[in-house]
Design a protein around this nucleic acid. Sequence first.
RNA 1: CGGGGCAUGGUCCAAUGGUAGGACACUCGUCUGAUACGCGAGCGGUCCUGGUUCGAUUCCAGGUGCCCCGACCA
Length: 965
Amino acid sequence: MSDAGAPPKDYKDTLHLPRTDFPIKGNLAKLEPRMLGWWAERGIWARLLEKNAGAEPFVLPDGPPYANGHLHAGHALNKVLKDIVVKYRNLAGWRCDFIPGWDTHGLPIEQAVEKRLKDKKIDKRTLSREAFLEHCRAYAQEFIDIQKAEFQRLGVFGSWEAPYRTLDFAYEAQELRELATFARRGMLYRRKKPVYWCLHDQTALAEAEVEYEPHSSPSAYVAFRAGPEPAERFPVLKGREVCFVIWTTTPWTLPANLAIAVNADFEYVFYEAGGRVLCVARELLARVLAEVKADELVLKNARLPGGDVEAVVLDDPRRILAYASGEELEHLTYQHPLLERTGRVVLGAHVTLEAGTGLVHTAPAHGQEDYEVGLKYGLDIYNPVRGDGRYDETVGAALQGLRVFEANPIILELLAERGALLNSKTDTVEHTYPHCWRCRQPVILSATSQWFIPLDKPLAGGRSFRQQVLEAVDGVRWVPEWGHSRIRGMLEARPDWCISRQRSWGVPIPIAYCEGCGEALVSAEVMERVAAAVEQEGTGVWYRTPVKEFLGADTRCASCGQGEFRRETDILDVWFDSACMFSAVLERRQRLPADLFLEGSDQHRGWFHSSMLVAVGTRDMSPYRACLTHGFVVDGQGEKMSKSKGNVIAPEKIIQQYGAEVLRLWVAASDYRNDVRLSDQILQGLSQGYAKIRNTLRYALGNLHDFEPARDAVPAAELLPLDAWARGRLAEVVARVRRAYEDYEFHLVYATVVDFCAADLSAVYFDILKDTLYTAKAAGRARRSAQTVLHEVASALPRLLAPVMSFTAEEAWQQLPGRTVESVFLAGLPQPHGAMEPALAERYAKLFAVRSAVQGVLEVARREKLIGSSLEARVVLTASGEARDFLQAHQGELPALFIVSQVELTEQPGPRAQPLSVAQALGEGSAVTAEVLPARGAKCPRCWVYSEEVAQGREVCPKCREALS
RNA sequence: CGGGGCAUGGUCCAAUGGUAGGACACUCGUCUGAUACGCGAGCGGUCCUGGUUCGAUUCCAGGUGCCCCGACCA
């Protein structure tokens, strides 16, 4: 309106504004599937391996996820971390194949299949073992396919067409060969061990199959008559009947009692009551006496021949005849109340003062800790209970043949008759008790024969297996370092490895038993023979082939000479399955040892642990050189994710809402050594970070639309100073990012790149560059110099980011002018070329310090409505000392750096001059002021910089005139 | 209950035995030629208690919270 004359010419099409097909928004939900298809069509993964065919291999095996259910965030975390390693190693020039795998045997699938059969109204018992296993196999394969698709959707590269599965015949066969090696080395033995046993279903149950439910059990306080030792040690007890008092809720286990456990650190008292002396923990004396009820005690005592009849005064200190520590009680003996047997007192740290008497009835066949204490003291794992839940003949005529739960009242009655029961035989206690998950009946702990790998047996060379394993562990690089002490602690304390399971879905244990005497025939040769058959036909061959065919027709039992055998039907622990991965997959298809195992921290007791045991046990070596652990996924508050809390975030949802790329970014940005938080807020923040990086790439690409590196690139030595600075920064970023990958510090990759994009490029370099890029002569030196560096940025960033932001990196790469390879993954990692000259770095550190201070002053002027755009401003500086010389030397560069129209350097500060706090950057004693005034002249319609010539009537400013010429 | 680990603004991460930094978010301002963008300014922090030290966010001890593994429930 103000210009009455000719309409202002539109100079917009004389500018070199950014132009690109790289959209500002990722639209990842659409881009990602398209990119996956693009990679697949062009066989990028295969070509990557091919490209590095001759290179040194880097072996990163896949710890197999269990083939059940859809992926959760933990799966995603683990697999993306592996993918980052795989892609980085390949880009950096190693040959790093990734062979995905699945763990397929075991209880959860068995249970899921049983449930399915039930839903289809098929009775499992009508199926043959082989038919049932076929269902399990199909189920596992179904979830392998599901999970495979889900992993691939995350952009994980790997040999997906050739994964390994623990159900592969070759895998199962190799596993049996490892077992054969243990057998050959004499590292396989059989021993009884308590397991959960369902009397109704007559089957062993896994921990996961028992459910604790409220239950009413008998409560019995039982007196065990001590041998002569207490009286020898404590004269005051001489001539008295001394009893150890125990409490039990399972009287039926009393026939299997072999010991009484006490805690070495507790104090025990010998308390006179009703004519005899009861030994209990001092702290529990009052409670015990209250429980056993004085009246009952008196009545029963009355029946004892020669016993005194007297009232019991509860907890009367005068009746405490002696004190003893638990330690002093060790090795004392007692008479079993029901059987002709002498037991002994043992020490156990599991004895507590929470309930009972401080003395624990110990039946090694019927309790986990009883068992462990039994092993320590060399007790027999004596189990008088048969599989059908009835006592065998060793318990005496009164009990033989009884079912254990029915035996409870009878045993109580027998105890009462003998005066050994101190409380009422009808007393009960309410507590939780394990029940069978399927039939809902209470279960028992009962010792059955199991197969073990011994940890402490001395091996060739005199050292124990455990020692060998610990030495191997010491030779591994643990990342983070605490993984070392973690797994060491576990290995030092762990019991022998129980490798047998009473299940169906798994690898059989090819061992035969003599039909005559029950002796086991353990033979490495037989196992090898079975392995060969399994390799061809699968594990079903073990069940359908007569055992003799594997043993040889003339085989006789070494112990009794009989010739008839039956097969073992137990299967191997699934941890043994996956532990053999190093052999079945690495040794055959890659290399042993692996360079790196990478799993969640729970695998210190899982795969890290079991793989180490099998590899040391069969190869005397660690299966991995380094072992990296990540934490667990928790919610935004750091709390565990669980369905009941409703704080679970499924990967699928993240992919839909944000894209797999943001999920990958989450993995990369988090410090995985800690627990990793996942929340909507976190994902939104990452989306922002993603947008920042994306927009940085877009700016660079957009300003390269007319740039051909071969034709237009400016030699490094001829770059303008600011461009040389930016190139130097890029080199630093490349170096730091490469180091971060090398050190497995991926969160520094993301942080470094985002910082670079936001702080160095977007806020400074790109902002300053706009004027040159848009308005300078297209092929002039200034613009080409800038473009040269932008091209380096647009070339380096996608390659640095490809391991993490695979989709976007590839998308950006496709837009890069002059690229010589088709895919970013074939382009290799950028080198840190053009390291920053220290003088250049120092110079720009100073200039940017001044720039930042000036921006503060501009902001004040903007608030006072003196200016809007910074180009409306003229900045007048005064400076003293070194600063003055420095600013004078760079005066020509300052308007561009400040993005203002003019910068003047004067002697006297103006009335509105503000001091700048730049002394730290420019040197002590440097006093600089800045004053913002309106720019001189008028706005150039082309470049928007104010110019006096335009005010004087020229159409455009001199710079534009030059650019347009 | 035992073993292992972690703790820095609202969020994700840096740094250091000597003034704790960046990004994102938030608030305000600005541009409209990176525009569902860009630029500037502001707000905001070392879990708690002791100890070592001239000085501790950093080293040590204890506590609290959270995570992983295991045990317990006779």
